[in-house]
Computed example of a mutant assay.
Amino acid sequence: MALPARVEIIPGHDVVARLGRELPAPATITITCLPHHGPSETVDLAVELAALGYRAVPHLAARSIESKQQMDTFSKRLADAGVKDIFVIAGDAKADAGPYAWSVPLLEELAGTGSFRLGFAAYPEGHPAIPEPELTQLLLKKQEYGDWAVTQMCFSAPVLSDYLARIRADGFTLPVWAGVPGQVRRTRLVALAGRIGVGPSLKFAKRSGSLLRSVLAPSSYDPTRLVGSIERSGGFAGLHVYSFNDFARLPGAS
């Protein structure tokens, strides 16, 4: 049975119009919060998409939030717009803009409002700045405040399945969404990889000849086989599709 899907987008000047043409409401759309545009643009877009009938899931990067007052304003705007889910990350800003140096304090504060279901990141292929077993300890800490997790982008169903089994054995019980690429043009995948943290997955791909040919094919990467393998493996709540704003070739989200 096909898994439900959420589609991740990057804010841009024409993104709303393109979504309307290629992936209409009520699709579930998650909105990145990259350092160069910050949380205000993410919240603005989430509110706009919610008004158009989308199930909007904004990403909030802790290090990019300037103050508790700003966070309170974001929280009220999102709740008033009918947004039900927020994805909380530490973010890639080089310096903290305000009081949130990492994701857990922000998760704790948002959980206290009782207004949102909260998601956070999981790392099947590790994290460049956080060693194991600290990553697992952090995941279990986030579980105290959150409601679901999303994995970093991964090109291997066995890696995802092994990771899910491992964290379940460690006591992680929340739903996990498998992070997968959409059917993205090769040139766009490579160009944007560094901007949204796909580096570890591409390095993994380079360690496998057949996988490398799949990912770096002459035209585009097709995730059909990967998605099928994830669905057959079972255990995941759904697919978190990294679209790179390439909506025309995505399956409809649910």
Rank of each mutant, 00 (worst) to 15 (best):
10 I>L: 09
68 K>P: 07
134 E>P: 00
196 I>W: 04
134 E>N: 03
102 W>H: 15
176 V>Q: 07
113 T>Y: 13
7 V>Y: 02
63 R>G: 03
247 F>G: 02
12 G>K: 05
155 F>S: 00
11 P>K: 03
5 A>D: 00
206 K>M: 15
193 A>I: 10
205 A>W: 00
35 P>S: 05
133 P>L: 02
32 T>R: 02
191 A>N: 13
110 L>I: 10
54 Y>C: 03
84 K>G: 14
81 A>F: 12
149 A>E: 05
56 A>D: 06
170 D>G: 02
91 G>E: 03
130 I>M: 11
54 Y>D: 04
208 S>V: 06
136 T>D: 12
217 A>D: 09
69 Q>G: 10
233 S>K: 01
184 V>I: 15
233 S>V: 02
94 K>L: 14
130 I>T: 07
153 M>F: 06
106 L>S: 06
23 L>N: 02
181 P>K: 05
31 I>M: 10
159 V>H: 02
245 N>Y: 11
148 W>V: 08
237 A>L: 03
64 S>E: 12
165 A>E: 13
31 I>A: 12
129 A>Q: 13
72 D>A: 15
101 A>N: 10
134 E>A: 11
55 R>E: 13
114 G>N: 09
63 R>Y: 01
183 Q>P: 15
9 I>L: 08
137 Q>M: 11
133 P>V: 05
67 S>T: 02
75 S>M: 10
87 F>W: 06
50 A>W: 04
148 W>C: 07
227 V>N: 01
65 I>H: 00
114 G>L: 08
164 L>S: 00
87 F>I: 03
73 T>D: 15
56 A>K: 03
